[in-house]
Design a protein around this nucleic acid. Structure first.
Length: 280
DNA sequence: AACCAGGCGCATA
DNA sequence: TATGCGCATGGT
């Protein structure tokens, strides 16, 4: 990885295995939007990201080295050697998925945002998840520019009630969002603790929240806490497991199951049923 | 017009 | 431990 400041931009080169559009839109983060001039735009933490990628060069608009290093390197997991990890996947289906959608990386989002987003994701579809989260942010986030809002803090959400959340149209998930915000706000669950403890205990901690079961906990750990060994099984991954891995994941994914999962998930979501039959 | 969506809580056995 | 049902909402 090389990067340099040019004017108000940071220009990133020489990163292997990094497809911005795929990262932004493969179902792990829900706030990225493509602007008319081709930039991917989202608020991450308190920072507006406007990023464009062409011919292996990635330009982060209107930022500086410090922001790049503190926000964007961790967010896009840029220090991790994905090329090496993927090369270790000695498996036919994984190789198909990687060939079809190269350049997916696991985004390290804010823990609370990941927990809340994947509570919203349950029994829901991605376009609707995005809509609910957008309304959540514009309603209760901090406005940091004309059109940009942060993801609202759990402290802020903890002060609300179900009526306040009704306009989000999140349905039965509203009470789960409130329970999560309140438990975090009261300190019944500590994000710092969850970050440090072994993954089995971290799962249990997160599942104290109503509306957080195995799958949501796993997503929070993978996308919010950088636990790349977490392995969320949703309906799509479940199909994959039944169709392709009846005896479980191949050994080569050990320790990086979450990365394998993301490739398989996106691949399976984007192939039609006939194609599946051909592969099996 | 049923069926489904990056599931979970709860009741029942 | 395992299964089955209801749940809010909106898209296909």
């Amino acid at each position: 990885m090389k990067y340099e400041a040019i004017g108000n931009d940071i220009v990133l080169t020489d990163v292997k295995c990094f497809d911005l559009d795929l990262c932004a839109d493969c179902g792990q983060a829900f706030r990225w939007k493509k602007t008319e001039d081709g930039y991917q735009k989202a608020v991450v933490r308190n920072t507006v990201g406007e990023i464009i990628q062409k011919d292996g060069v990635t330009v982060f608009r209107n930022t500086d080295k410090e922001t790049f290093e503190t926000i964007w390197i961790p967010y896009f997991d840029l220090e991790r050697d994905y090329e090496n990890i993927l090369a270790g996947f000695d498996d036919r289906y994984l190789n198909e998925a990687i060939k079809a959608y190269p350049g997916i990386r696991i985004l390290r989002q804010e823990p609370w945002e990941a927990i809340c987003s994947f509570i919203i994701s349950q029994n829901n579809n991605i376009p609707r998840i995005k809509g609910i989260i957008e309304r959540l942010c514009t309603s209760f986030g901090e406005q940091i520019s004309e059109e940009d809002f942060t993801f609202p803090s759990f402290e802020k959400i903890a002060k609300l009630d179900e009526n306040d959340l009704a306009p989000l149209r999140a349905g039965f998930r509203n009470k789960y969002i409130l329970d999560a915000a309140k438990k975090l706000s009261r300190g019944e669950i500590s994000l710092d603790t969850v970050e440090k403890i072994p993954i089995e205990q971290a799962r249990e901690e997160l599942m104290k929240i109503k509306g957080v079961g195995k799958k949501v906990a796993e997503c929070a750990l993978l996308y919010g806490f950088g636990r790349i060994e977490a392995f969320p099984v949703d309906v799509w991954v479940n199909r994959i497991m039944e169709e392709l891995y009846p005896d479980g994941l191949p050994e080569c994914t050990r320790g990086v199951e979450g990365i394998a999962q993301q490739y398989l998930f996106h691949w399976r979501r984007n192939i039609d049923e006939k194609e599946v039959k051909n592969i099996v």
